[in-house]
């Protein structure tokens, strides 16, 4: 018995030692390490809401990738930089960077597709221009595009702005039918569907959609999304003549806006 125990311990020790003795991965070149470290730091800063730091790290990553002629990396850094600039309120600078990405064929097609999509998001106030950018994004992304649901949601939003409600409904139905849909996009599709239902006078369906959207957005814990949802719920309550619901949605909205006063829906309210 004792010898068996000793044998098992020896085998375990050997396995551990062999794990430690595994050949370490060959180190990457210094500039690559610097670029990747800057990307990681930029993502961490973005997650923490430190957008000024994120902007600086994305610029650092862009310079590092440019110094080793890595256009895909440069493109990623520029896309991240544009996003952090948007979050910092510097939309004009972000649009300038994205326009530069779209027009330069040295960047990979997927980077240019993302640039066109991000620019379309910034052009929502001018639906015709945004639609053109979105069409370019679709063309560059190709048939097996992994971001189809995002594109369809944005297309539905633009169609609703233009009053093309049947087209928007068809796009949203397609998005909601997808299996591998990110939760954020599902919640967005549900909120847009609620808008459509309210527009069509189907109050019951509108309530059903917005309740589902709120449930997902509460899990995602994104203040701007919740503010959008409750702003819509208050509008719905007004249309349904439900004063109790309108009061409740108003109080929730007031509390959310007090915590996030810069949200677009709070500024418009």
């Amino acid at each position: 018995m004792k010898s068996l125990f000793t044998l098992i311990l020896s085998a375990a020790a050997l396995a551990l030692l062999s794990g430690c003795a595994a050949t370490p991965a060959a180190p990457k070149p210094v500039r690559v390490q610097a670029a990747e470290a800057a990307v990681l730091a930029a993502n961490r800063a973005s997650q923490a809401g430190a957008y000024a730091d994120a902007t600086a790290f994305w610029r650092e990553a862009g310079v590092a990738y440019a110094s080793i002629d890595d256009w895909a990396g440069q493109g990623e850094a520029a896309l991240g930089l544009a996003q952090s600039l948007v979050r910092s309120g510097e939309r004009d600078e972000a649009v300038r960077i994205l326009s530069g990405l779209r027009g330069d064929t040295l960047y990979p097609a997927m980077v240019r597709a993302r640039a066109a999509y991000q620019q379309a998001l910034l052009q929502v106030a001018t639906p015709d221009v945004a639609t053109q950018s979105l069409a370019e994004a679709r063309a560059l992304c190709g048939v097996a595009c992994p971001w189809r649901s995002r594109f369809d949601n944005l297309a539905a939003r633009l169609a609703m702005q233009a009053g093309a409600y049947p087209q928007a409904a068809a796009l949203l139905a397609g998005v909601l039918a997808s299996d591998d849909l990110p939760q954020g996009e599902r919640a967005h599709a549900l909120r847009l569907s609620a808008e459509l239902a309210l527009q069509g006078g189907d109050l019951a369906r509108a309530r059903q959609y917005i309740d589902a959207a709120i449930a997902i957005d509460r899990q995602l814990a994104e203040p701007a999304y919740l503010i959008d949802d409750y702003a819509f719920l208050r509008r719905y309550a007004g249309a349904a003549g439900d004063d109790v619901l309108a009061g409740e949605a108003g109080r929730r909205l007031q509390s959310l806006c007090a915590a996030s006063p810069d949200a677009a829906a709070c500024r418009a309210d």
Partner: peptide, 13 residues
Amino acid sequence: PPSASAPLPDSRQ
């Protein structure tokens, strides 16, 4: 682990 690439914004932004 944080993503090694730039985050793709949601269509809702």
